[in-house]
Amino acid sequence: MIAAIGLVLGIVAGIFLEPTVPTWLQPYLPIAVVAALDAVFGGLRALLDGIFDDRVFVVSFVANVLVAALIVYLGDQLGVGTQLSTGVVVVLGIRIFSNAAAIRRQLFRA
């Protein structure tokens, strides 16, 4: 409940505050968002499995974001930033899909 309310609050804040992304953050923000989405879906799946633990969720969320940002940073330094970003997005996308499939199975048995 708190999480859903927080999500809505964040969206509303983003809409009304209209912040601009600082330049140093621009390459990392999209990847970080995808990584966080992955963590959220994982958390939702764990919740439905009855094994949700907020400590694990927080750690996995922060770790996901940091690792994703680190990979992008490393890719930029190595000159393969674009390709590595694509790879990270693909991997995270696959994980999001598998988590979504597990959630679907839990909720609808299908």
Partner: peptide
């Protein structure tokens, strides 16, 4: 106290999503 931090993180996520969409 336990699910206050996940809520905060979700708020951060929503905020980041909106910001990123706008900047894109």
């Amino acid at each position: 106290r336990g699910n206050l931090l996940p809520g905060l993180l979700c708020a951060l996520l929503g905020f980041a999503v909106v910001v990123q969409v706008r900047s894109t």
